[in-house]
């Protein structure tokens, strides 16, 4: 463990708390893509299936449980509790275009052709692009509640912070994980436009609005 990874994980944790807080205080999941949230459940379940056969640490164990449980809870909130506040007509990204390529890529580019290893690889590729339905929705509506932008910023910071972690691990542990690194760079790259508006507008106290 190093500081970058710890901060990345904490940022990830924070993003989830912000999202749950947003849904509960506004009693609405307006502006949140159900598809993106469903993809995160898929990502966590596929990757953390190793809870059954791989022990890393107590930290790692509880974080995995938390990510699976909280993502399922968010789906529940969106699907049942606050269902009327979700507008499927603006959440129309075709997730097949993300899941399909992630399946194919994980079958081709993996470390070992084994079921759980391919699931891990699939989860890494899918996570890289899982935010797209959410960003697509933001693009369509052209604006977002401030709290939603804080959620997205914390979520984007999480993978961005993993990048110095990988550089650090390369030098200190001689560990390199090309699949995670390439996917992580793509994932972070997808946030660049968002970060630009977040830093130049939201953090200056303005509303998140995309130019018409």
């Amino acid at each position: 463990m190093n500081l970058f990874r710890l901060l990345g994980d904490l940022s990830h944790l924070a993003s989830i708390f912000i999202l749950i807080h947003k849904i509960q205080t506004t009693r609405s999941c307006r502006g949140i893509s159900f598809q993106t949230q469903a993809l995160y459940v898929t990502v966590f379940v596929a990757r953390y299936i190793d809870l059954f056969f791989r022990w890393i640490s107590l930290y790692n164990f509880f974080m995995k449980i938390f990510f699976i449980a909280s993502s399922v809870y968010i789906l529940y909130l969106m699907k049942y509790r606050y269902r009327p506040t979700h507008d499927p007509s603006i959440d129309t990204f075709k997730v097949e275009y993300l899941v399909g390529p992630a399946v194919v890529l994980s079958l081709i580019f993996n470390y070992k052709f084994e079921f759980t290893e391919i699931l891990w690889t699939f989860s890494i590729y899918l996570e890289a692009v899982a935010i797209l339905p959410q960003l697509f929705m933001l693009q369509r509506t052209g604006e977002a509640e401030t709290i939603t932008t804080h959620y997205l910023a914390a979520l984007g910071a999480y993978r961005a912070l993993y990048i110095p972690n990988w550089i650090y691990r390369y030098f200190t542990e001689d560990v390199v994980d090309p699949i995670a690194i390439v996917a992580g760079l793509v994932q972070t790259g997808l946030y660049l436009d968002f970060f630009y508006v977040y830093f130049t507008k939201v953090l200056q106290g303005q509303k998140f609005e995309l130019p018409a």
Partner: peptide, 10 residues
């Protein structure tokens, strides 16, 4: 040559 990554990250 390096061993394959051991998936100890989240």
């Amino acid at each position: 040559h390096r061993p394959p990554p051991k998936h100890d990250e989240l």
